[in-house]
Structure formats: structure tokens, C-alpha cells
């Protein structure tokens, strides 16, 4: 099934090319997967798997498809499989999320990204102390609500309320970027 005996195929991608492809798209694809699965470790695993699959099948992938589009499709399918297998979400809520727009769309506007980065970091810094602590434990250290509650010796209800509060504050502070959302997200994906 695997075509590992064709390492030296002329059309095939060499290791350097593969590494370059990986380095270029790993973050963007991880973010893309994260939109579906909402879990950093799982998103990362799915993207790793997609690259393994891509490498193993590199000689049989159709030439008229770009590697980016092949990888993007693989990642999306694997995310959907994951959600189905784990009975996480139903299809219709994903429709509301309008995920997976046009992935060939490329914009280079580093200024917007820099400004956004600064705004997000500022907004996070300015969260009330308790709120910020909970938000960072959950987002930066990928701790589940229960783990955050255990660590801080508070109830899950408190974590939940503070997370909701953090999101409300962020939404107000990042309002100007929300209208630019599609543009910015595409920059992150490249």
C-alpha cells in the first residue's frame, strides 16, 4: 500500500523540499485543525499524521494538485473523522462556524499582524488578575477547566465564569480586528 520503495522517483519530493514544505505550513495547518478540534495536542497530532501520510504517498499524489491543497484536505478530513469518532460535535454547528474558507488566498500585510499581536498581548495583560491567570492556564498551558480548578483550588463554575468574562473583554478590545478577521486569519495561515 505504501510506496516507500520509490524514494528516488523523479517527480517525488526530496527530503529538503519536504522539510521546507513542513516548516512553511505546519503552523497554519495546526491552526486550521484547531478551529475544528479545539484542542492543541490533537490538532498537532492530526497535522503530524497528515504530513506522514503525505510523505508516504508522495509518489502517488496527483500532479495537478498543489501539496498545500492536498494537505489542507487531509487535515480537514481527519478533523471531521476525529469529531465523528469522538461524538464531539455535529455537522451543523460547523456550518455556523463557516470554517475552511479559501485556503489559496494569500495576503502579506505584516503591519496588520504586528498590530494585532500587540493588541492581543495588551488585551491579555489588561485582564483582571484572577481572570488572566485562569485564561492563561487554560489557553497557554492547555489545561482543561477541571485541571485549572484543581490547580487553583477553585470550582469549575468559577473557571467557567472567568473564562467567559475573559472572552467578553477580549471581544470588546479586539473589535476593530474582528471586521478584518478573514484577512488576518489568512495571513496566519501562510
Amino acid at each position: 500500500m505504501l510506496e516507500t520503495d520509490q524514494h528516488n522517483s523523479k517527480k517525488g519530493l526530496d527530503r529538503q523540499g519536504f522539510e521546507a514544505l513542513f516548516r512553511k505550513h505546519f503552523k497554519g495547518l495546526t491552526y486550521f485543525a484547531l478551529e475544528y478540534v479545539k484542542d492543541h495536542d490533537i490538532a498537532r497530532e492530526i497535522v503530524q499524521d497528515a504530513f506522514v501520510n503525505f510523505w508516504e504517498k508522495r509518489d502517488s499524489i496527483e500532479l495537478n494538485r498543489s501539496p498545500e491543497s492536498y494537505l489542507g484536505t487531509t487535515v480537514r478530513n481527519r478533523c471531521l473523522n476525529y469529531l465523528r469518532d469522538h461524538k464531539k460535535f455535529d455537522r451543523s454547528i460547523l456550518d455556523f462556524e463557516e470554517l475552511g474558507g479559501n485556503h489559496d488566498y494569500v495576503v502579506q500585510d505584516q503591519l496588520v499582524v504586528d498590530e494585532l499581536k500587540a493588541s492581543i498581548e495588551k488585551a491579555t495583560r489588561e485582564l483582571p488578575e484572577k481572570c488572566r491567570e485562569i485564561f492563561l492556564l487554560n489557553r497557554l498551558e492547555h489545561k482543561k477547566y477541571q485541571e485549572v480548578a484543581d490547580e487553583l483550588n477553585i470550582s469549575v463554575k468559577t473557571v467557567e465564569a472567568q473564562m467567559s468574562k475573559a472572552l467578553r473583554i477580549m471581544r470588546v478590545k479586539l473589535a476593530e480586528f474582528i471586521s478584518l478577521f478573514i484577512l488576518i486569519i489568512e495571513i496566519f495561515k501562510t
Binding site: 503552523k27 489557553r139 472572552l167 477580549m170 488576518i184
Partner: peptide
């Protein structure tokens, strides 16, 4: 949609900074 977008911006930056 607004909540999801402000969340997503934050997440995009997180992936960018922590990968």
C-alpha cells in the same frame, strides 16, 4: 460569530508563538 472570531485571533497568535 464575534466571540468565535476574537477567540480564533487569540488562538492563531498562540499557535504562532508557541509552536
Amino acid at each position: 460569530s464575534e466571540m468565535r472570531k476574537s477567540w480564533a485571533l487569540q488562538e492563531a497568535l498562540l499557535v504562532e508563538n508557541t509552536t
